[in-house]
Design a protein around this nucleic acid. Structure first.
Length: 667
RNA sequence: GCUGCUGUAGCUCAGUCGGUAGAGCGCGUCCUUGGUAAGGACGAGGUCACGGGUCCGACUCCCGUCAGCAGCUCCA
């Protein structure tokens, strides 16, 4: 006998095998029509999946109100898309077609090169399939039979997947929809007719099973919603997000440029962008000094031997600029990281335990030869400056130093109003042996790191095994850009490798008067200035808080008669340390206001006859609008205070969430 | 690096069937002298990314190079 618990607390008992669809029917025809899938305990299943014959289960019927149902419908929509593609083109090999954060995709191996021009035909075919309203039918088979079926259909990728990825599964499931039969775990909605409005979005290449050495497939992306309004709202959000793309704003607001003549992935900071960067650097430098860091400077190149000792060469040679070859076999490397140089500073004299921790900080510019296809904007570049520092401390000091690093990173992000980030604790993969240092040491370090992180209540803390560097565990601060792509900004990493005898053999003299090996911590709260500013541009949608705004205030004269007074005001603003400009063109005030608004200037000071007479300015706030007149001195004080307090008044909305994090239903 | 798409004025883009280019914004000059998101007129500005090829003729078609975009893979 089976006892079924429903969400309202009631229970139902069944003597025979029963499917969720039948229970829905019993409860009421309206629910039966609305139900798209079911949740049995914690598992989402199709409505025709038989429940166990014995015991007790909880059952929730999923309708359009449930987010889980949306994912199920999208997966079904992916099947419909695959079916349409197979109808339109010959020799289509099916690969994977999962649901992703805001839609779905399906990977195909096929001769025809799909382009956006094919979309209307595919969409039309999909609409035809949905109108036919055929059911999705689940078929379970023993693996041998499944193999035979896939082989019979000529689906070589599925055959391969059964033999590799699914070799431990005794039975496998298919979903049939008309002539379309696909190896699939499911679940699916009951019939094609319930699939809502959809749209194909893009096509791109993808490797079979994510392996660059294997066959390249064509990946078709799409999305699907319950209602037309939701679909349109989503597409509109995507468009809005694109409008604050830092690559676009960077050009429009003249913040940075990349020129082929200089080189791919090499950023030119234009004057306005350079202001933002230098203010950030100045601020971070002040914080570093407060927190006991010592600024240092090191060269941009180092001998290859330095990197052979550190282990970066030739291990990372792939992603480095080729060495510079001089006479007599002398070779130099453009530095891919700052740590070897800092290690040499630590080693410049013997160290005592009394002076630890030693904290060496530098805005160090590094060069990495990233693959051309990876580059873009400021978030992935070939030359960048890290707000880098290396801490050398005793084993006992690790937890406290780690905490200090996290605190500083948090403080910096908080001050800028950057709150939507997650913290990824990268731990070792227990199955791998690529790591240096004893397992015992790792276990202790990971436990200490986790304890510190938990105490600090970091947002969205996730422990990810296998995400550690080979030399030590780390904590990364990860943010999403306007297209939902995640970027690592700040990072704190423990390092047992560089100090080890196999590498630099670092030492300090302990209280026992014998040498000990220090632990090293790499940390960069911003990560790289390039990436950080890129993300900041999107975070503020180009409208920086007053303290960072390249142009803080613009004086504008109502007519040219008041230019002289305007220039006096402008001079006073500048004397007070504000970045001020003046607009004295022969334009109407409305046009000047509009230009300043579009240029995202935080404050406008309007001067005309009244202001000149009374020694005042009319203050217009970019966000609030007209604030009325006030004496010049008062306006200066108001702005100066806002600068000093680093006030953040407005940030752009959250990400459009175009992320592609995979959800459960693969194959 | 791989697959696909794209490259026209400083920016955003149009350009039909192959017959040597166009708009808006911006910029310059002049008129207008105004009160919180666009006043008006005139004008300058192009080796159609670059290099080959096909053709009587190429911005247009083909090949290559470079760069950008999307995704994949990678990311110390």
């Amino acid at each position: 006998m089976l006892k079924v618990r429903l969400p309202d607390g009631s229970t139902r008992e069944y003597e025979h095998s029963v499917r969720p669809a039948e229970i829905a029917q019993e409860i009421g025809p309206r629910l039966a029509r609305a139900a798209l899938a079911a949740k049995v305990e914690d598992r989402v299943v199709s409505l025709d999946t038989p429940l166990p014959a014995e015991g007790e289960v909880s059952l929730r019927l999923l309708t359009q109100k449930d987010p889980e149902a949306l994912a199920v419908m999208r997966h079904s929509c992916a099947h419909v898309m695959a079916r349409a593609v197979m109808r339109l083109f010959d020799g289509v090999q099916l690969a994977f077609g999962p649901t992703i954060e805001n839609g779905f995709y399906y990977d195909f191996g096929m001769e025809h090169k799909l382009t956006e021009e094919d979309f209307p035909a595919i969409e039309a075919e999909m609409r035809r399939i949905i109108a036919e309203d055929e059911p999705f039918e689940r078929i379970e088979t023993p693996r041998e039979q499944a193999l035979a079926v896939c082989a019979g259909l000529g689906q070589a990728l599925k055959v391969e997947h059964i033999n590799e990825g699914l070799k431990d599964h005794a039975t496998l499931s298919f979903y049939r929809q008309g002539e379309f039969l696909d190896l699939c775990r499911g679940p699916h909605v009951p019939r094609a007719g319930v699939i809502g409005p959809f749209k194909l979005l893009s096509v791109a290449g993808a490797y079979w099973k994510g392996d660059a050495s294997r066959q390249q497939l064509q990946r078709l992306y799409g999305t699907c919603f319950f209602t037309q309004q939701e679909l349109e709202a989503h597409l509109q959000r995507v468009e809005e997000a694109k409008r604050r793309d830092h690559r676009l704003l960077g050009r429009q607001l003249e913040l940075f440029a990349v020129h082929p003549m200089v080189g791919q992935g090499l950023v030119l900071w234009l004057p306005r962008g350079a202001i933002i960067r230098s203010l950030l650097e100045q601020w971070v430098r002040e914080e570093l000094v407060k927190r006991g860091y010592e600024p240092v400077y090191t060269p941009h190149i180092g001998r290859v031997e330095l990197y052979q000792t550190s282990g970066h060469y030739p291990y990372y040679a792939e992603s480095q600029f080729r060495p510079i070859d001089m006479e007599e076999g002398e070779r130099y490397l453009l530095k891919p990281m700052n740590c070897p140089h800092h290690v040499m500073i630590y080693q410049s004299r013997p160290r005592s335990y009394r002076e630890l921790p030693v904290r060496l900080a530098e805005f160090g510019t590094v060069y990495r030869y990233e693959k051309s296809g990876e580059l873009g904007g400021m978030t992935r570049v070939r030359g960048f400056t890290q707000d880098d520092a290396h801490l050398f401390c005793t084993e006992e000091q690790v937890a406290e130093e780690f905490r200090g690093c996290l605190e500083m990173t948090q403080y910096i992000l908080r001050t800028l109003g950057l709150t939507s980030y997650r913290v990824r604790l990268g731990f070792r993969d227990p199955a791998s042996n690529k790591y240096v240092g004893s397992e015992d040491r790792w276990a202790k370090a990971q436990a200490a790191l986790e304890r510190v992180c938990r105490e600090m209540d970091l947002p969205h803390l996730e422990i990810e095994a296998g995400e550690a560097a080979f030399y030590g565990p780390k904590a990364d601060f990860v943010v999403a850009d306007c297209l939902g792509r995640e970027w690592q900004l700040g990072t704190v990493q423990l390092d047992y490798n560089l100090p080890s005898p196999e590498r630099f053999g670092l030492e300090y003299i302990g209280p026992d008067n014998t040498p000990h090996q220090p632990v090293m911590i790499h940390r960069a709260p911003l990560g790289s200035l390039e990436r950080f500013v890129g993300v900041l541009i999107e975070h503020f949608a180009g409208a920086f808080p007053l303290w960072l705004a390249p142009e803080q205030v613009r004086v504008m004269a109502v007519s040219e008669k008041f230019e002289e007074y305007g220039r006096q005001v402008e001079a006073r603003l500048k004397a007070a340390g504000l970045r001020a400009t003046g607009d004295y063109r022969a334009e109407k005030i409305g046009a000047k206001v509009r230009d300043a608004q579009l240029r995202l200037v935080p404050y406008m000071l309007i001067v005309g006859a009244r202001e000149m007479e009374q020694g005042t300015v009319s203050v217009r706030d970019r966000i609030e609008g007209d604030l009325g007149a006030m004496p010049v001195q008062q306006a200066i004080e108001k702005l100066t205070r806002e600068v000093q307090e680093k006030t953040v008044r407005k940030v752009a909305q959250l990400t459009a969430g175009l992320g592609t994090r995979r959800e459960a239903n693969t194959y």
